[in-house]
Design a binder for these strands. Structure first.
Lengths: 340, 340
DNA sequence: TTGTACGCGTTATCAG
DNA sequence: CTGATAACGCGTACAA
């Protein structure tokens, strides 16, 4: 029994009557032959002392830590949590541990986060951040590989995993148009150069253009502070509906969906009857609001898994240009987008 | 310029023309006097090379890693995320980093999680788990301190931080009784020995007893699989309301609230008019369901902070018996518990 | 006040 | 096939 920590490789070596090197080889280079009796002795000693190598010491010596740094812009965002969950699962299966760093929406802390994580010798990064706090380039990453999730950073050629925003938006718009909606309002958080927001907004514009002049569309950037502006936008939309032209809102993510739902309640408007609705992100509460909220469900688990897998492939030495994985969303139809 | 990693203490020493020990002292023992010119040289070298000590090597050598292991039963639970957020903030402020391990509701992986984290020399643990997978005692913690959050483990004398369940339940019940509700149904996830669930259930029983025979109460354990049973329980409750005796449901947490809301929709029942409602956990969507869901808001951020602070105090050497921090909840009244 | 030498636990190299 | 030995980066007795 050891008093302080766990058994070390030296303890095992002593117990087995061999050298530390032999023990190390027994564990790491099983392919090379060891004389059977020595192997047996080592194995017994390892088992008896319940020996586990110290990842810290391994990291120091061998260079790899089997740690993956996951940086999230805002852990409050259910999307991020869902992705994190998928990534964590994949990492654990591959023998990696995740170190989480939450930016709490403080853009400037991204550099700090990377440095802190790099200090612990993480083998690579999964980044779900804005990437605006001081140009996160390959250099700032301390030469370690990274995978970007949902948000592309300008001038960074890392692997990238995300929802296929263009296709998803096309599906959502198509569904509404088919259901008879003719005035579409896309509500998004302020673009601020966030790639996913820009992509969705651009795709929205393209969809509307494809149906013009039968369909009209508008974009509204919605901040958290200014509920009045949102109310105004919604009631304007409602008023603009004339001659049976039905109106609908598309929400850029779950946060916006919540804001829209609150505004609808304030204005005493009903989903589906007064205003059609489709939102990105299918939250657990989506079926319970009004007649049920139609949503574009993101394959968050798959996105997280893909990000982790991608990164681990790189860690295993995969070379080649940056890859882009765009995963398809799924439209979950509920009462809020009922046809005429 | 270093090719591989960052500058090491040796690089700084060389650049300043001193020994590694001097550099180390300059950083760690500022109180002791160093000759001013040497100090200046070291300082300059440190700045110029942008030197940062490797936490890994520090951990290996000095024993402490400035890492805190946070083990969560289920990261999908918004409560856990909120607590995590508070804990993470406090940790960062104190210079600690959080390593997250998510059990994904797999009880048996708790031991695995602790061992993995201990391998990385975490200085202590924050545990939000069931504590049933193989008796997590002080021994299994590798001698490191721990703080329990929300769920007490049997036979473990660690610090404990949680909502004051008894007081919160008393407030919730009192509010309903005062509002004229006379038939109360408390719906909880299966108790399974989870301390917080048991406490709330016990407190519910006590509250009902205090008002008997004016008020009647019942407890229903609601699994995720069996929606029919929940529907039956709800419609039974509804039927049992006679002679103007109003009925209400209390939900043990946000997950249950979601299930209840779904069941209410299936049965075409309305919150507030048909059935009163108060739920534990005030989720962001609570105001948007029906007439707004009355909720017991937990001080999740404070709980997380308190847990982290508690642990860090122990890490700094605080002795003494295990402490219990019970933080008060806040009742947020909305339409679902409207008075007669 | 500063430098030397060693230990932390592991892996890799190089002899044997 | 196996055993010394030198890193890895840092803190700290101990010596000067």
């Amino acid at each position: 029994m050891q008093r302080p920590g766990r058994a070390t490789i030296a303890d095992v070596a002593k117990a087995a009557g061999v050298s530390k090197a032999t023990v190390s080889r027994f564990l790491n280079h099983r392919e090379r032959l060891l004389s059977p009796d020595i192997a047996a002795r080592v194995e017994a000693a390892v088992a008896q002392l319940a020996y586990t190598p110290s990842p810290m010491a391994q990291a120091l010596s061998h260079g790899r830590s089997r740690l993956i740094g996951l940086i999230v812009a805002d852990i409050t965002n259910p999307y991020s949590v869902a992705v994190l969950r998928g990534a964590e699962k994949a990492c654990q299966e591959a023998g990696y541990l995740v170190m989480l760093f939450n930016l709490g929406n403080d853009v400037d802390r991204e550099r700090e986060a990377i440095d802190a994580l790099a200090g612990y010798q993480v083998d690579g990064f999964i980044l779900n951040t804005l990437g605006r706090g001081g140009l996160v380039d390959a250099d700032a990453l301390h030469g370690k590989p990274a995978v970007l999730v949902d948000r592309m950073h300008a001038g960074m050629h890392s692997d990238f995993v995300s929802l296929d925003n263009t296709a998803a938006m096309k599906t959502a718009c198509g569904h509404l148009v088919e259901g008879g909606y003719r005035e579409l309002l896309y509500i998004t958080e302020p673009l601020k150069g966030v790639s996913s927001r820009r992509e969705r907004t651009a795709a929205f514009g393209a969809c509307v253009a494809a149906h013009e002049p039968r369909v009209a569309g508008e974009v509204f950037e919605c901040t958290g502070d200014d509920g009045d502006a949102l109310d105004a936008a919604l009631s304007a939309l409602r008023k603009r509906a004339r001659r049976g032209r039905r109106v609908a809102v598309l929400a850029g993510n779950a946060v916006v969906t919540l804001r829209v739902a609150a505004a609808m309640a304030r204005l005493d408007l009903s989903f589906g009857t007064d205003v059609g609705f489709v939102g990105f992100d299918d939250a657990e509460w989506a079926p319970l609001i009004g007649p049920g909220l139609t949503a574009v469900a993101q394959p968050t688990d798959a996105i997280g898994r893909a990000a982790a897998t991608c990164l681990i492939e790189r860690l295993r030495g995969l070379e080649g240009p940056a890859r882009q994985l765009l995963l398809p969303g799924e439209l979950v139809v509920r009462g809020s987008s009922a046809a005429a």
